[in-house]
Design a protein around this nucleic acid. Structure first.
Length: 562
RNA sequence: GCGCCCGUAGCUCAGCUGGAUAGAGUACUUGGCUUCGAACCAAGUGGUCGGCGGUUCGAAUCCGUCCGGGCGCGCCA
């Protein structure tokens, strides 16, 4: 519709002297229904060029548009308002055709042709297997998965990827932590000591590493190893404990993701990047460009060349690369796999380091344009009214599973999707249950269940529909308002996908549910004459389609009964 | 000290590339179930959009500055 209006308006504008050649009229949906369905501020924008008042220009344009013969089936009225807005109202024909389209498209309404936009990679979660997924990871997981859904609906062929590293210092400490707990079980002579973790005293075996992992899951892994092998592992190195922990933790992580309805297409192990020494080739290439150099036994990346205050280490004096080097390699690998769009979902703590990666790959001659980053702000955990610093190592966290147990999977997903990624979230587990009762997700699901209920009821009473639905009977304001809302769905999805902002969809769906519920309250269906009831039933079914498809994009169930 | 994010109703948050009297949920007050689901609807109370300057016909939105909160600034990831 905007395209149509824009075309008409441009046509009219071309007849007027003084309008800049590159002038682009803009349209928007007014906040208030009094101002019509679409409005343009073109008269105000043109005032300076035409040296007339916006109001005069608006009236002139309105008259010209009228006499040019607008399709009244699409646009029923043009009004000039206030300081010089042009307000347009949709014609009913446009609305009824929209409704027809929704019913015809069904579960594909809002979905673009698969693969028509190319291939996309969404990398998210990417937590190293050192502990269970926490509420913080939950935000990442739900955001990433939903952006992936949005991209699918936007016509991308999407791969969901999880990047992880099971080598390095943290994993070594994980293995040592398990081993120490195992010794405590297998060897009755084990001595213990007490350590202080942020004011909490914790008893650990003597052999427990500094900065070891304190979560109970470590004990569980140790216990199951003892069950299986008895004390025969006492002389083993930490390696076997590490891999047991990794296996067990990954199983938990996958289970938690599955509960959220998330399926990863690919797990990318950082190790892969060291095959054929590819990452070291990167270092050589950077050296050739004078972007890498040796100092203090380490290899440095000259990030000051990109405007940073300091250079950063690429390879430690121990010979072990820092995360930055494989990250560059990883993103080059992604680019070489030929995706049209590469999305990364990061916590706010990565924001300062990612530019290094981009600068690195650019310096090596790659075009980083396909890469897009979603940064989400941290979830602040509140316990007993006090903010708690989340730390996997110190076992200070609320796991995603606990959250889902408490408030259900649907509420968990919606909780993360109803707010934009860049707001700081406060999360209080004690209040979560309470809050879940008033979570708007139920409102959306309720509206959906209601439509289903009406459909069931109609079947019960043996209601027969007209085959040829006469939409023009839908004249009630609640009906037209609802239709206007429903036909926005594709545009909302498109914009949400382009901006990678799922919360736009959840906000929109609430509006749909509200409009539907108002329609339901004001217009009866069963009991009305057959033709009116048929038309209203069609509107109810269209509402159901939008609610269902929207909830599907968000990864939330659309129950037929509640 | 430097970089990034945030500051909107009592609380949790929307507000799209600057637009018309700043919105929703929740909480509170009041009214509404003999009719398709009351997990609902209708109405009301509630805001100097953190402060101050600037750009603009027009600023919650853009720019500057200050205040307050979060996250970074590791040979951790």
């Amino acid at each position: 519709m905007q395209d149509y209006l824009k075309k008409q308006l441009l046509l009219v504008l071309s007849e007027i002297d003084g309008v800049p050649d590159d002038f682009e009229p803009e349209f928007e949906k007014p906040k208030s229904a009094e101002h019509g369905d679409l409005s343009s501020n073109a008269p105000m924008k043109l005032a300076r060029y035409l040296r007339k008042s916006p109001r005069q220009i608006a009236e002139d344009l309105a008259a010209r548009l009228q006499s040019a013969g607008l399709d009244t089936d699409r646009i029923s009225s043009i009004e000039v308002a206030d300081a010089g807005f042009l307000n347009f109202r949709y014609g009913t024909g446009f609305l009824y055709r929209g409704l027809e389209h929704i019913l015809g498209a069904g579960e594909d309404f809002g979905r673009k042709t698969p693969s028509s936009s190319g291939r996309a990679l969404v990398e998210f979660v990417s937590a190293n297997p050192t502990g269970p997924l926490t509420v913080g990871h939950g935000r990442n997981a739900v955001l990433g998965d939903t952006v992936a859904n949005l991209l699918e609906w936007a016509g991308y062929d999407v791969t969901r990827e999880y990047y992880f590293n099971d080598a390095g210092r943290q994993m070594r400490i994980l293995g040592q932590s398990v081993k120490a707990r195992y010794e405590a079980i297998a060897n009755p002579d084990t001595k213990f000591r007490t350590i202080d973790s942020d004011g909490i005293e914790i008893v650990v075996p003597e052999s427990f590493p500094e900065d070891g992992y304190l979560g109970d899951y470590i004990k569980d892994v140790a216990a199951s190893l003892f069950e299986k092998h008895g004390d025969t592992l006492l002389s083993e190195s930490e390696e076997i404990f590490k891999s047991a922990a990794e296996k067990s933790i990954f199983k938990e992580i996958n289970a938690a993701l599955k509960r959220l309805g998330i399926h990863m297409d690919s797990f990318f192990n950082e190790k892969t990047l060291y095959e054929n020494d590819r990452v070291y080739e990167i270092v050589d290439l950077l050296r050739e460009k004078d972007l890498a150099y040796d100092k203090d036994g380490a290899v440095w990346f000259r990030t000051t060349a990109f405007g940073k205050e300091k250079d950063t280490v690429l390879i430690k004096s121990t010979g072990e690369p820092t995360y930055r080097l494989p990250d560059i390699g990883y993103h080059i690998d992604k680019l070489e796999r030929g995706y049209n769009l590469i999305v990364n979902v990061f916590g706010a703590d990565h924001i300062a380091t990612f530019p290094d990666v981009l600068n690195g790959i650019r310096a090596l001659g790659y075009n980083p344009d396909p890469i897009d980053v979603i940064i989400y702000q941290f979830v602040t955990l509140i316990r007993n009214g006090q903010p708690v610093k989340m730390s996997t190592r110190k076992a200070q966290y609320v796991t995603l599973d606990e959250l889902m147990d408490e408030v259900s999977e649907d509420v968990t997903r919606f909780f993360f999707l109803m707010r934009s990624a860049h707001t700081h979230l406060e999360f209080d587990l004690d209040l979560a249950k309470e809050a879940s009762d008033t979570n708007p997700v139920f409102y959306l699901q309720y509206a959906h269940a209601r439509v289903c209920s009406i459909l069931r009821k109609a079947e019960e009473v043996g209601f027969s529909f007209d085959d040829d639905t006469n939409f023009s009977l839908l004249q009630h304001e609640a009906e037209t308002t609802l239709i206007k809302e429903l036909i926005l769905f594709p545009e909302v999805l498109e914009k949400a996908a382009a901006a990678r902002e799922p919360h736009r969809v959840s906000n929109y769906l609430r509006e749909v549910a509200t409009r539907f519920t108002q329609f339901y309250g004001q217009c009866r269906i069963i009991g009305e004459s057959t033709d009116l009831a048929s038309a209203r039933m069609a509107l109810a079914r269209a509402s159901r389609i939008v609610l269902k498809n929207g909830l599907t994009v968000l990864g939330i169930s659309a129950p037929e009964r509640m």
